[in-house]
């Protein structure tokens, strides 16, 4: 029983981190057709910026979350205006460019913060654990991460489904030319979505640092799982990122606890099955080719 409760909680909290990371990745992929492989590196940059604010400077944790998001958002703005706007529909160039950004950002972090990894950090009120079942305790930070994930999912869902910008985004995903034909500056909206996605990745890095700390290979190690979540959940869908994140989180958690030898394989098995049954992902919409 303890095993089930602990792993449900673990899976959901890990899924929440994956959701925080993938919501932006999924939106930019769905809305702009840009596969930003450096999204994980922006997560890492956010985590390092947050460490400087919360640990090195000893300032407020939420300020660190904001700063991590802003720096990642600013980097996103530079990337989008400087590079991606010239590469629409050029998937090979995007992959090469964004892969290059991973190396550039990783080495920038090495230069600024050094090679020594940073220990997990969070707000003082979220540190520590509480009794959960039997002799086991559970991390407060993990519950907070889960809560943040749920709140952000609700906010992003509202934004995408109930606001004018959200309607433009959905319209653009269905038919970009028609949306532009209606006199809407779709390019501006797409840029906004890209920066928003990067902001969320940076903020997620600070929030995720409470569980995993910060290391230089964080950008690369979390990227593959993020892509799996986007494929499983469906690109361009907030609900898809949430469902995909939680599903993959639970599979990883139970897989490691019960079948450690094949836990990694299980994740990809699920991805293959979903690709065979529903190639657009669990909640994904069929998007026109760009």
């Amino acid at each position: 029983m303890e095993l089930i409760i602990l792993n449900v909680l673990n899976g959901v909290s890990f899924g929440a981190i994956l959701f925080l990371l993938c919501s932006g990745l999924s939106l930019t992929f769905g809305v702009m057709g840009i596969l930003n492989l450096s999204h994980g590196a922006l997560y890492m940059v956010g985590a390092y910026v947050g460490w400087s604010i919360a640990v090195h400077q000893g300032l407020n944790f939420w300020l660190a979350v904001l700063a991590g998001g802003l720096v990642a958002g600013l980097l996103g703005l530079i990337m989008e205006r400087g590079f991606f706007r010239h590469l629409h529909g050029m998937i090979n160039e995007q992959v090469l460019l964004t892969f290059g950004f991973i190396y550039i950002l990783t080495n920038l972090c090495l230069w600024i913060w050094g090679g020594v990894p940073k220990a997990p950090y969070t707000a003082p009120s979220f540190s520590g654990s509480f009794d959960i079942v039997g002799d086991w305790t559970y991390s407060k930070a993990r519950l907070v991460v889960t809560g943040i994930g749920i709140v952000l999912a609700a906010v992003l869902w509202f934004f995408q489904e109930k606001t004018r910008i959200g309607a433009i985004i959905r319209a653009g995903m269905d038919n970009k030319e028609m949306t532009i034909g209606l006199g809407i500056n779709y390019g501006l909206v797409a840029t906004f979505v890209f920066i928003l996605g990067c902001f969320i990745a940076g903020a997620a890095g600070v929030i995720g640092a409470s569980l995993f700390g910060v290391t230089l290979d964080l950008g690369m190690s979390i990227l593959l799982l993020a892509l799996v979540v986007v494929v499983v959940g469906g690109k361009g869908s907030v609900q898809g990122a949430l469902v995909g994140g939680i599903l993959i989180g639970l599979i990883i958690s139970f897989g490691k606890a019960l079948f450690p030898q094949i836990s990694t394989f299980l994740v990809y098995l699920v991805m293959i099955v979903i690709l065979l049954i529903k190639p657009s992902g669990i909640m994904g919409k069929k998007v026109q080719d760009r």
Binding site: N10, T215, S253, F254, K256, A257
Partner: peptide, 26 residues
Amino acid sequence: TEIDYTPYLSNLKMADAMVIGTLGPP
């Protein structure tokens, strides 16, 4: 490259001591 050990720890059999052979600081 594992960064989340909680699932492994949730399946831990209690012994007199735990031996860790993971590599690297992260």
